[in-house]
Design a protein around this nucleic acid. Structure first.
Lengths: 203, 203
DNA sequence: CAGAGTACGTACCGATCGGTAACATTGTCA
DNA sequence: TGACAATGTTACCGATCGGTACGTACTCTG
């Protein structure tokens, strides 16, 4: 983990404090706004305003809004992979423990108020057209997740690894969305229990 | 099923739907468009054009677009309840069979190409603001579903009915969203198997 | 210092958004 | 026939949408 170069050490007004590149500020601001409020709900005007830059700066760094959206989703996918692998990092050769570590982490995260689910899942729903870049990037990431789960289930010696992987994927995606619907104390609280049941029944 | 009351109880040629009320045409068109393309993606102009009516007709029947959205979601909730209860109607006193009937139906529906998931779930994601009417209507419907599942699990004699209900809710919501992400042959195909595992383990 | 790039802002574009005012037309029933 | 409710027609509103032509300020290099 390298230190972010943008720590506000000085006490300058936020406007003049722009040591970072405009493109980076736009990318970070778009990430937060797209994730929290939804992609279609946020216009480019709001992004550049909140980022303290101007529209031409956005269009110099990104071809279009769709291009920025795709960049956001690629960023999200990258951070997701880290969040998926991190909790089980201390069980290098135990795929079951790795998976459960992430699920236990997700269970609490998705059962807390203000949770906004998975940015990739949300993007698929906001952009159902198969040829839209947002849809494509998000689906690609989900296919990779499905594959990753299959590998883990295979490695833990499940009887029908693909079936188990898909069952767990249902639980995971269900946690993402119902975490938004029901806030605190939502169904995701049982994610760990349910997953263990399914895993143990398949070993 | 009672026949739709058509506001005028006079004698009319058996509603051939050709000259239906503008408000009904708008409601039906909005339903299809909102569900298939997404709510934010569809403007009022497109709705009235496709419905063959004009904008003033829309605003005579609905206060605002948000009002139309709320009506759409209430319609969706009503049709959902029918789809949820219908498959198990021939098992009046067997909550487990009732539930599995719906799940088996959902498993194939959510594993076919072109599936667009649950309109209510999608609405929660498109409108994360808690005070938006779309969010409120959708969440209310989801809470009712959670309660319905709890009752069914209680009636089938589960050890921890609330936990089982939430586990199944995760599987259901997971089927809705991953049905959109992966088309044919998506994870929802294992919904029935996974649900049976969880149910049998809880009885 | 000159000059070239780079990085950014000012001001604007046409299109579309949700929504409305005023008036004409139609069909139904008394 | 006349009244009334429902719908269509036309034209418009201000706000916001995604996107751009063009000018300016800073910095690096010689």
């Amino acid at each position: 983990m390298r230190p972010k170069p943008s720590s506000h050490s000085g006490k300058q007004p936020p406007e003049t404090e722009a040591p970072r590149r405009a493109a980076d500020r736009i990318r970070d601001t778009a990430f937060d706004l797209f994730y929290r409020e939804g992609i279609r709900a946020i216009g480019v005007e709001e992004i550049v305003t909140r980022a303290g830059v101007t529209k031409p700066s956005l269009y110099r760094a990104f071809e279009s809004k769709d291009d920025l959206i795709a960049a956001y989703l690629r960023d999200y996918d990258q951070r997701f992979c880290q969040r998926f692998e991190a909790p089980g990092a201390d069980h290098p050769d135990d795929p079951k423990a790795q998976l459960l570590a992430y699920l236990d982490y997700l269970a609490v995260r998705a059962s807390t108020d203000g949770y906004r689910g998975c940015g990739l899942t949300n993007a698929v729903i906001e952009y159902p057209e198969h040829d839209h870049p947002a849809h494509q990037v998000a689906v690609q990431s989900k296919q990779a997740l499905r594959e990753r789960l299959r590998t883990m289930c295979r490695n833990m010696g499940a009887r029908d690894p693909d079936d188990l992987a898909d069952s767990l994927l249902l639980l995971i995606e269900g946690s993402y969305v119902s975490g938004q619907t029901f806030g605190e104390g939502g169904p995701a609280r049982v994610l760990g229990i349910a997953a263990r049941r399914l895993i143990d029944a398949a070993l």
